[in-house]
Write a protein that binds this DNA or RNA. Structure first.
Length: 557
RNA sequence: UGGCGGGUCGUCCAACGGUAGGACAACGGACUCUGGAUCCGUUUAUUGGGGUUCGAAUCCCUGCCCGCCAGCCA
């Protein structure tokens, strides 16, 4: 899919390889990831991060982390640290190349004066409302600002006085002098600087004018010697402007290359919409395990390897897409399957008394920690006369395809014994309260000496040794594939996306897990110990359930 | 109906004038001390119409459809 030999390259890597081959920029590859510190990173950003940092790594280049902090109204330090943490967690390193657009404010200002001296920028006194009217529409050309032909010296003087704080906010702008009739609206004399008295998270009150994105971004790239500047499709229209500034100034000229951003089914990806879910209390926070944020995925128990694998699999192209959430789920399971220790966890406990087992008897049985990883070793798990099994692993009147426990039927307790159900205990309402079984002492470890087969192997936990825990079950946040297509986003929320199961019974080995540790509860799924855990009450989050063939059988009928 | 970009299996990505392929999903089977995992197999696609060519997903023309753009946001 990408760089493996035999696989095809995406269009961006094709460009990069061609540039290296042709010796452009002396064969140098230098990219950057330029987040605005105004929110938390999500899996869409992971695609950009893996592209920016990943391509630099693949081609022996460098990738800078640069915060694009040109608008103090929206930005805050609070986000800087979380963004850095998420990028590191994903597995990338900017070494000593941490930059801020605000580091270049002075340089940007000098370049602006240069544009004025070259006669290609002017101070405009139009109000925001007037600017809008002068701009024209998609189908009609704009009109020249009456201030467009101001003498150069006057522009320079006015711009210096803008910086000096002589004019109120919004009263003037510095504009590029391009073409008010351009069919590309971005080229209709776009603003370069606005007057804005707002304290900046890094420069404080030293500036009352701030550069606009289109002007600032190409300069940031140029100053840092970026060779390939990747961004999303909506900036395609801005590329002529990116090139225009650099050409007027005659400075180092990186190449902007646009690719399609990630969309995922059953979720939304915009900071604004995700923020709304947080504010409305639909989710518990930016790191709610249902959120597509990196912090949410991390809390859910997803590992960075799974995300990187996912990004490699979705490819890189320019067309709009809506990637199936099932692919992400697959990557998560595939990764966890290889790495996770298996433990026993009974989510919906049903007590089983093994009547022919010694009253106070206890023994330890050997369990394989991870069948997918020989090096993971084994551990000892306690067994006793009273155990819990999953309530759904017993059917009093078994469905014709049901292979597990039923009256008179024998099943295997994983790595333990074959047991047979001899009696069903019920309360006055007829609800099953427990089972009575017998075990075959000769089947210790799980195999019958006579070679007889059983229909199923089920998981279990010794009752006196069980650790009681809360398990939080998560499902997709939205009921529909494309929530954005719906008129009311909140009405498409999946009401079953979160369910808490109290009183789950886990095997004692689970007690040793630290927060953030992910295990497989055999036959159920992958679960991650949540930081909300206390000594008395551990909390586990469902990361991903195991494929459930039984459920499919039922669904089909 | 201005400009820019894009339309290939259900989904995502390949094929760069020469047999439309992979992954996920779905379906069927094998195997199994997880109804997990694994393995095998099956189904399904070039936006319509014209051209150029021995040969077109690919080049040309022309429709159709989708996305983005009218912040002193990024």
């Amino acid at each position: 899919m990408t760089t493996e030999e035999g696989g095809s390259l995406d269009f961006i890597r094709e460009i990069v390889e061609r540039d290296i081959r042709e010796g452009k920029h002396e064969g140098r590859v230098h990219t950057r990831f330029p987040p605005e510190p105004n929110g938390y990173l999500h899996i869409g950003h992971a695609k950009a991060i893996c592209t920016d940092f990943g391509i630099a790594r693949e081609y022996g280049g460098l990738c800078n982390l640069r915060f694009d902090d040109t608008n103090p109204v929206k930005e805050d330090v609070e986000y800087v640290e979380s963004i850095k943490q998420d990028i590191r967690w994903l597995g990338y390193d900017w070494e000593d190349r941490l930059y801020f657009a605000s580091d270049y404010f002075e340089q940007m200002y000098r370049y602006a004066e240069e544009l004025i001296r070259k006669g290609v920028a002017y101070v405009c006194d139009l109000s925001p409302e007037e600017v809008r009217r002068y701009r024209g529409t998609l189908t009609e050309p704009g009109k020249d600002s009456p201030w467009r032909n101001r003498p150069m010296e006057e522009n320079l003087d006015l711009f210096r006085r803008m910086r000096a704080g002589e004019f109120p906010d919004g009263s003037r702008t510095l504009r590029a002098r391009i073409d008010m009739a351009s069919p590309n609206i971005n080229m209709r004399d776009p603003a370069i600087y606005r007057i804005l008295r707002r304290s900046h998270h890094r420069t404080g009150d030293s500036w009352c004018i701030y550069p606009m994105y289109d002007y600032a971004h190409c300069l940031e790239d140029s100053i840092e010697g970026i060779t390939h500047s990747f961004c999303s499709i909506e900036f395609e229209d801005h590329r002529p402007l990116y090139d225009w500034f650099l050409d007027r100034l005659g400075i180092f000229h990186p190449q902007q290359i646009e690719f399609a951003r990630l969309n995922l089914t059953y979720t939304v990806m915009s900071k604004r919409k995700l923020g709304m879910l947080v504010e409305e209390g639909v989710v518990s926070g930016w790191d709610d395990p249902r959120m597509p944020t990196l912090s949410g995925l991390r809390r859910r128990g997803v590992k960075p390897e799974a995300i990187r694998d996912f990004v490699n699999r979705i490819g890189l192209a320019k067309r709009d897409s809506n990637v199936d959430m099932a692919l992400l789920d697959y990557c998560i399971r595939d990764d966890l399957n290889r790495r996770c220790t298996r433990i026993m966890g009974v989510l919906d406990p049903l007590k089983v008394t093994i009547e022919n087992y010694p009253e106070d008897g206890t023994e330890e049985l050997e369990f394989i920690n991870n069948p997918e990883d020989e090096n993971a070793g084994t551990r000892m798990v306690p067994f006793s006369r009273e155990i819990f099994i999953e309530r759904e692993d017993f059917q009093e009147e078994p469905h014709r395809k049901f292979k597990r426990l039923a009256p008179g039927r024998e099943v295997r307790l994983r790595y333990a014994y074959l047991i047979r159900c001899v009696d069903v205990e019920k309360d006055s309402d007829g609800r099953i309260t427990g089972l009575v079984c017998t075990y075959d002492p000769g089947t210790r470890g799980g195999n019958a000496p006579d070679g007889r087969k059983v229909g199923a192997t089920i998981h279990w936990v010794s009752a006196p040794h069980a650790v009681v825990a809360d398990v939080r079950m998560y499902d997709r946040l939205f009921k529909v594939e494309n929530p954005l297509a719906e008129e009311d986003l909140l009405s498409t929320i999946n009401p079953d996306s979160f369910r808490i199961i109290e009183g789950c019974m886990l095997e004692p080995a689970s007690a040793g897990a630290g927060n953030g540790y992910t295990v497989q509860f055999e036959r159920k799924g992958y679960f991650c110990k949540d930081p909300d855990s206390t000594e008395a009450r551990p909390v586990w989050n469902l990361t991903a359930s195991l494929r459930d063939t039984w459920k499919r059988i039922l669904d089909r009928e």
